[in-house]
Computed example of a mutant assay.
Amino acid sequence: MRAFFASLCIFGFVAASSPILAGEANFNGTWSIDLRSKAGQKRGVECGFATFALVQTGSKISGDHTSSTPGCGRLNEGGKGTVKGVVVGNTAVLVVTSGRNGAIVMGKATTTGASLLWQTLEEIKQGEPEGDSPLILGKGRLARQ
């Protein structure tokens, strides 16, 4: 846990002391990915999306996220303030808290044109009850909405 906070502080220091780098990327907006299969999309299956709604102010990011399985069997409604992070260049280190079970993960988001590439790097805190999925996107290419 200390290593995580040390890493986050280093990223924050670099971003704060490098306004040119921090201004390169624009993470503002709503980013979404359709997790349904092609067949599920054709059938119009409900749910099955993961979304990040992000607000970038200088080198800081805040926002929320949602995720659901196709068919709406499991939901993570995230909630306001469930995403926090810092930007360095075109990459952001984000900490995401599951509204479903309280799990916390750290991940990396990179902007490439109209896409946001997301990858969870580490689970910082396990959710309750143990073994319940936090329904935080593990990896994917999200499109700006």
Rank of each mutant, 00 (worst) to 15 (best):
M1W: 14
M1R: 13
M1A: 15
R2D: 15
R2C: 10
R2P: 10
F4S: 14
F4C: 12
F5Y: 08
A6W: 05
A6H: 11
L8H: 09
L8Y: 15
L8P: 03
C9S: 14
I10P: 01
G12M: 05
F13R: 01
V14L: 13
V14I: 15
A16S: 12
S17M: 06
P19V: 00
I20K: 02
I20F: 09
L21K: 03
A25P: 00
N26S: 09
N28L: 01
T30F: 00
T30I: 10
T30K: 12
W31M: 03
I33S: 00
L35W: 10
R36S: 01
K38R: 03
A39N: 10
A39K: 13
A39Y: 09
A39Q: 13
Q41I: 13
Q41R: 15
K42P: 00
K42Q: 14
V45I: 12
E46H: 14
C47P: 00
F49L: 05
A50G: 12
A53Y: 00
A53M: 09
A53H: 08
V55I: 10
V55A: 10
Q56V: 01
T57F: 04
T57I: 12
K60A: 13
I61W: 07
I61G: 07
S62W: 04
S62V: 10
S62I: 08
G63K: 02
D64L: 00
D64K: 08
T66E: 11
S67C: 13
S67Y: 05
S67R: 07
S68Y: 06
S68K: 02
P70N: 07
P70D: 02
P70M: 04
R74G: 13
R74V: 13
L75M: 14
E77T: 10
E77L: 15
G79F: 13
G79S: 03
G79R: 08
G79M: 09
K80L: 07
K80N: 06
G81Y: 09
T82G: 04
K84E: 11
G85L: 07
V86W: 10
V87Q: 08
V87S: 06
V88N: 04
V88K: 00
G89K: 09
G89M: 06
N90W: 06
V93K: 06
V93F: 14
L94P: 05
V96R: 06
T97E: 11
T97L: 07
S98A: 14
G99D: 01
M106T: 15
G107Y: 03
G107P: 09
A109K: 06
T111S: 03
T112K: 14
A114N: 13
S115A: 09
S115T: 12
L116G: 09
L117W: 10
W118S: 04
T120W: 02
T120F: 02
T120C: 04
L121S: 13
K125T: 08
K125P: 00
K125I: 05
G127T: 00
P129L: 02
P129D: 08
D132I: 04
S133E: 15
S133W: 13
P134V: 06
P134F: 04
P134H: 08
L135N: 06
I136R: 03
I136V: 15
I136N: 01
G138E: 12
G138M: 04
G140W: 02
R141E: 14
R141Y: 07
L142S: 11
R144F: 00
Q145M: 07
